[in-house]
C-alpha cells in the first residue's frame, strides 16, 4: 500500500463519516459544519488526484460560497437550537433501497468503463491540462453548447432570485 492509497482511504473515511453526521446531527448548525468538512474532504480527494484546479474551485465555490450561505440561512432560521422529535421518517427503508440502487447503478456503469481498473498516471502535465480544459469549454466541437446553456441557466436563476426578492409594493 502506497502513501497515496493510505491518504485516499483516510480522506475518504473522514468524508463519509462527516457526510453521515450531516444527516444525523441533532443541531442543524452542526450539520452545516459537518457538511463543510465533507466538502473539504472532496477537495482533498481532488488534490490527491493532482487536480489542483478542481480542488481550489471546490473550496472556493462549495465552502466559500454555498456552505457559507447555508450556514447563514441556518442562523436566520428560528429555533435552530431545539432538537426534539424523531429524525427518521417512516419511509427510510424505501430511501435506503433507492440510494443503494443509484449507487449500484453508478458502480455498474463504472465497471463497464475500460479505464476503471487502470492505475492513475502520476506526473501529468498540469498546466497543459488546465489550458486544454479551458479550450474544450469554448471550442465549438466540444463543450461550448453545454457550457453556454449552463451559463444562461445561472443568469436566469440569478434574475429570478432578484425578482422574487424584490419588494412588490415598490415600483
Amino acid at each position: 500500500m502506497t502513501g497515496l492509497q493510505i491518504a485516499f482511504l483516510a480522506i475518504a473515511a473522514v468524508t463519509l463519516a462527516s457526510a453521515v453526521l450531516v444527516v444525523s446531527s441533532r443541531k442543524i448548525m452542526h450539520a452545516a459544519l459537518w457538511l463543510v468538512l465533507a466538502l473539504g474532504g472532496i477537495a482533498a480527494l481532488f488534490a490527491t488526484l493532482e487536480a489542483s484546479f478542481f480542488a481550489a474551485v471546490q473550496v472556493m465555490v462549495y465552502i466559500g460560497a454555498i456552505a457559507i450561505l447555508i450556514i447563514f440561512s441556518v442562523m436566520l432560521t428560528r429555533r435552530v437550537m431545539e432538537d426534539t422529535g424523531p429524525q427518521n421518517t417512516r419511509y427510510w427503508p424505501a430511501a435506503l433501497v433507492v440510494s443503494l440502487g443509484v449507487f449500484g447503478g453508478i458502480l455498474f456503469l463504472f465497471l463497464q468503463w475500460p479505464g476503471f481498473s487502470v492505475e492513475s498516471r502520476p506526473g501529468l502535465e498540469q498546466g497543459d491540462l488546465l489550458v486544454r480544459f479551458g479550450q474544450a469549454l469554448v471550442s465549438p466541437d466540444e463543450f461550448v453548447v453545454p457550457f453556454e446553456v449552463a451559463s444562461i441557466l445561472l443568469v436566469a436563476a440569478m434574475i429570478g432570485a432578484m425578482i422574487i426578492a424584490r419588494d412588490p409594493s415598490r415600483k
Partner: peptide, 25 residues
C-alpha cells in the same frame, strides 16, 4: 508554483469567512 494560484488565493479567503462566522455563532 501552483498553476491555479489565483483561484487558490480566493479559496483561502473563503476559509477566513468561515472562521469569522464560526466565531460569531
Amino acid at each position: 508554483n501552483l498553476n491555479v494560484g489565483i483561484v487558490y488565493i480566493i479559496a483561502s479567503g473563503g476559509l477566513g469567512v468561515l472562521g469569522i462566522i464560526l466565531a460569531g455563532w
